[in-house]
Every structure is written in structure tokens, then in C-alpha cells.
Design a protein around this nucleic acid. Structure first.
Length: 276
DNA sequence: TCTAACGTTTCA
DNA sequence: TGAAACGTTAGA
């Protein structure tokens, strides 16, 4: 239950240590860390070794980031494709998932973790913004190469087919991937004025049929913590407990998943590549 | 195939 | 009600 006072002291020290690590602009160079009590701790999730600077989490401070989503919002077109054609094959779903995956990698960094209110603000913002933006090269560096981004867009070539969607920046978290396919959370469509878009309700029923593991949000303090305390029960019982360090347990995952909330926002878009 | 870790169940 | 154990999933 309660941690021993020595544990608390240790953790305070660890937190102090980590406070300088979490915001380290070049954390990737650390392949191994030793905390003050001599424990070598590495992130259990290798992908978390690639930490993000705080600026990466700040969506609204960067118009280029926003416009990036305009350019890369083509991913949504796939969803439109899905919703338009019920007879779509499973293999096509896979292909679309793959493409979505690529696109989401480009978008997740700056949009991850938006709540629905932020999303609404986001969409409002886009009402006044065109699609003419060409992102500066630096904006393209967020985990996706120029070539990849271009090829994805070219492959899909859907903005003209789905004018509703081509200019809309969708957070990957607003996509819901189920065994039945990939589609948008209904609330997202409401926000986008697409609530009447066909088949969403039918597809939405598939969400409830399959349980999906939630993913760490990657942004809360525990998620950003990259060192296992090695002291808590989870660390001590890693073999049998199969649990992440208590101090690294995502705040979002600690909460009970609300069905309604889950539809709006799977934690930063489950089923996509979150940390890479 | 292995490892990390989420979800569920069981137990104190 | 929280901790522990275990099943299971997802990614490398």
C-alpha cells in the first residue's frame, strides 16, 4: 500500500534527477542511466527512448504544425473510403491501416493528447485556414521523411475525391481501428460537421465487440518518466506482475476507460504507432 | 519468438 | 480496495 519513507525519499531524488532528464533536448544519446542509488535503469519500452521536447507537445503554439495536418490530413480520406464502401476487402483494410499508420506518424507528435475541447478549437481554427500551406522542411522531420509523406499522399490521392476530408486535420486518436476496419469516432464527425456521413453507426458498433488494449498517452508525467524506480512492487515483481513501474504508469490508463470518452479519443490513437 | 505492459481475476 | 498473479496483446 504505502511506500516506506525511505522509498519516498528515493523517489524524490529520482524525480529531481529525472526532471532534468525529461526535458533534456537530446535524451536519445543516453542509452543507459544510473540513478542516484546506483540502479541502472533503462526504459522498458525502447520506443520511449526517443523522448520529445516539450515543444513537440505544444500543438497550438505552432501554426506550421497545424498546417502540417492540413497537408497530411489525407489519412482521413481513407476513412471516407471505408465508410463509402462497405464491401471493402480485408486486405484493403490492411493496406489502409498501413497508410494511416504512415500518416499518423507524421501527425501524432503535435496533436497527441488533444482533448475534445481542444479538438473543437482546432477545427475552428481550420475553418479560417486554407490548404495552401507548404510546411517548412523542419516540420517534416517529425518522424517521417519527405519522401514518405509525399508518397503517402500521392498513393492515396484522395483530397479531390473527398473534399470534406482532405483539409481536415484528424488526430490519429480520432480514428478507431477495429477488426471491422478503421473509421472515425462519431464525435469527431460531429465536430467536423460530418455526422450524417453514412455507416458510422454501423461501424461504431464494432468497437464494442472487440476489446482493445489502450496505449500509454506518452505525455503525462509518468509516461514521460523514463526510469524505473526498481523499488516499487511492480518493478520488484516484474516477472510475475507484468506491470510497468508504478511511477511510470500512465495517468490515463489509471483511469477507468469511459465508453463515451473512448469513442472520442482513444488515448492518443490506439492502434497507431505512438512513440516512433 | 521474446519482451513489455494492459486488462482481468483472485486474494488478503 | 489495493496488490499480486496471470492471460493476453502488441511491437521489435
Amino acid at each position: 500500500m504505502s511506500e516506506p519513507s525511505s522509498q519516498l525519499n528515493i523517489d524524490k531524488k529520482l524525480n529531481l534527477l529525472e526532471s532534468s532528464i525529461v526535458d533534456d533536448p537530446l535524451p536519445a544519446i543516453h542509452s543507459e542511466r544510473r540513478n542516484k542509488i546506483g540502479i541502472i535503469s533503462e526504459p522498458l519500452n525502447k520506443s520511449l527512448k526517443k523522448s520529445r521536447s516539450l515543444s513537440n507537445y505544444s500543438t497550438f503554439g505552432s501554426s506550421s504544425s497545424v498546417n502540417d495536418h492540413l497537408d497530411k490530413g489525407v489519412a482521413l480520406s481513407n476513412v471516407g473510403d471505408l465508410t463509402l464502401d462497405k464491401s471493402i476487402s480485408t486486405s484493403k483494410h490492411k493496406r489502409i491501416s498501413h497508410l494511416l499508420n504512415k500518416s499518423s506518424r507524421a501527425t501524432e507528435v503535435s496533436v497527441d493528447g488533444l482533448n475534445s475541447l481542444q479538438f473543437m478549437q482546432y477545427t475552428d481554427m481550420f475553418k479560417g485556414i486554407g490548404t495552401e500551406h507548404v510546411p517548412p522542411p523542419t516540420d517534416l522531420a517529425n518522424g517521417i521523411s519527405d519522401m514518405e509523406a509525399v508518397s503517402t499522399a500521392e498513393t492515396m490521392n484522395l483530397s479531390s475525391e473527398f473534399p470534406y476530408l482532405g483539409a481536415f486535420p484528424f488526430n490519429p486518436g480520432l480514428f478507431i481501428m477495429t477488426p471491422a476496419g478503421v473509421f472515425l469516432a462519431e464525435s469527431a464527425l460531429h465536430m467536423a460537421g460530418l455526422a450524417e456521413y453514412p455507416t458510422q453507426n454501423e461501424l461504431a458498433s464494432a468497437i464494442n465487440s472487440g476489446k482493445k488494449k489502450r496505449k500509454r498517452c506518452g505525455m503525462c508525467p509518468p509516461c514521460r518518466r523514463r526510469i524505473n524506480c526498481e523499488q516499487c512492487s511492480s518493478c520488484r515483481n516484474r516477472k510475475t506482475g507484468h506491470q510497468i513501474c508504478k511511477f511510470r504508469k500512465c495517468e490515463e490508463l489509471k483511469k477507468k476507460p469511459s465508453p463515451a470518452l473512448e469513442k472520442v479519443m482513444l488515448p492518443t490513437g490506439a492502434a497507431f504507432r505512438w512513440f516512433q
